[in-house]
Amino acid sequence: MIYFVLIAFLLLLMIAAAVYSIRQKDLLYATLATGIISLVLSILFYLLQAPDVALTEAAIGVALTTIIFLITIRNTVRYESDEDNFKSEVK
C-alpha cells in the first residue's frame, strides 16, 4: 500500500514538473524543473528494479545536463520571448 502511494506520488510529481518546465517563461526555473524530472525518474528506475540505469540517470540527468543548460542560459537569454512579441530581455 505504501509502495503504491509512493509510486503514485512520484508519477504525479513527474507530470507536474514536465508541465511546469514547458509552461514556465523563466528558463532558469524550467531547467530546474527538468532536473526534478530526472531525479524522480531515477527513483522510479530504482523502484522498477533497474539500479544501473538509476545510477546513470542520477549522475547525467541531474548533474551534468542541468549544469550545461544553466551555463547556456548564462551565455544567452534568461527569459523566453513569447508569442506576445514582447522584447526579449538581453543581458
Binding site: A18, F45, L48, E57, S81, E83
Partner: peptide
Amino acid sequence: VKKSLLKVVIGLSVMESGLNLLIVA
C-alpha cells in the same frame, strides 16, 4: 510549439525522459 530555441531543447530533453521510462517499464 515553442518559439524559443532553448525551450525546444528543453522539450526534447523532457521527451527523452518519458521515452526512457517507457522502455524500462
